[in-house]
Simulated assay, not measured.
Amino acid sequence: MGRNTALETIKSQINENEIVLYMKGTREAPQCGFSSAVTKLLSKLKLPFKDVDVLENKEIREGTKEFTDWPTIPQLYMKGEFVGGHDIVREAHKSGELEQFLKDKGLLSRYQGKRTC
């Protein structure tokens, strides 16, 4: 997979899924604490998401950094928009901004009946 193919794959994944988390490992077996924390938050909010293990493909791992001009993993996308990495997602959740973002994007109401928090 070349650079352009990786960027096209990333763009496709983001456009075809409402929520995408580029992470180290998988939701069932995260390979870093930051990826694990974001996975746990999304699961706690009962938000379905596509997890992409960047450790499986170097071009995807490097492509995500180029795609967003963001140097670290995990990277969270919702409705095609880059939300942020671990620290930003955590702070947005604490401040209530994440919930407002979910409402604005129509994601909260869709999954509201399934939420536990």
Rank of each mutant, 00 (worst) to 15 (best):
L7S: 06
N17V: 06
S109M: 13
G33M: 11
K94M: 13
P30F: 02
T64L: 14
V52K: 00
T64Q: 07
L42K: 09
M1T: 13
R115I: 11
L76E: 06
Q112L: 15
Q75I: 09
R3P: 01
S36Y: 05
D51L: 01
G113C: 04
Y22N: 01
C32F: 03
F49A: 09
P74S: 09
V20D: 01
K114Q: 13
R115D: 02
E91L: 08
V20R: 03
V54Y: 03
K24T: 04
K44S: 14
C117L: 11
V83Q: 06
K114C: 06
M78H: 06
K40C: 01
K46P: 01
G84N: 04
I19N: 01
F67D: 08
N57C: 13
T5V: 13
N17H: 14
S43C: 11
K65M: 15
D53I: 07
F101V: 10
Q100A: 11
L42G: 13
A37V: 02
E81P: 02
T68M: 10
T116G: 10
R90K: 15
W70E: 08
M1P: 12
F101G: 04
S36I: 00
V89D: 04
L98Y: 07
K105Y: 00
G85H: 04
K58P: 07
A6Q: 07
R27I: 02
E66S: 09
P71Q: 13
L21V: 04
P48V: 05
N17L: 06
E66Q: 14
C117H: 09
H86K: 02
Q13D: 11
G33T: 09
H93S: 14
F49Y: 15
G85R: 02
G25D: 10
D87M: 06
S36Q: 15
S95F: 00
R110A: 11
K58R: 14
D53F: 07
K65C: 09
H86Y: 15
A6T: 08
L98Q: 10
D69M: 02
G2S: 12
G80D: 09
G85Y: 07
T39Y: 04
G33L: 12
P48D: 15
T116Y: 07
W70V: 04
E18T: 11
L41C: 10
T5L: 12
E81C: 01
F101S: 11
E81D: 13
F49N: 02
T64S: 03
L45P: 02
K46D: 14
F67E: 09
Y22K: 04
C117W: 07
V20K: 03
G80I: 08
L55W: 06
L108V: 03
V89A: 10
R110S: 09
G113W: 02
N15F: 00
L98I: 10
K24D: 03
E99F: 12
P30H: 09
G85V: 11
K58M: 13
E91W: 00
Y22P: 01
G63L: 06
F101R: 15
Q31I: 02
L98R: 08
A37F: 00
K105W: 00
D104C: 08
G96E: 09
Y111E: 13
M78N: 05
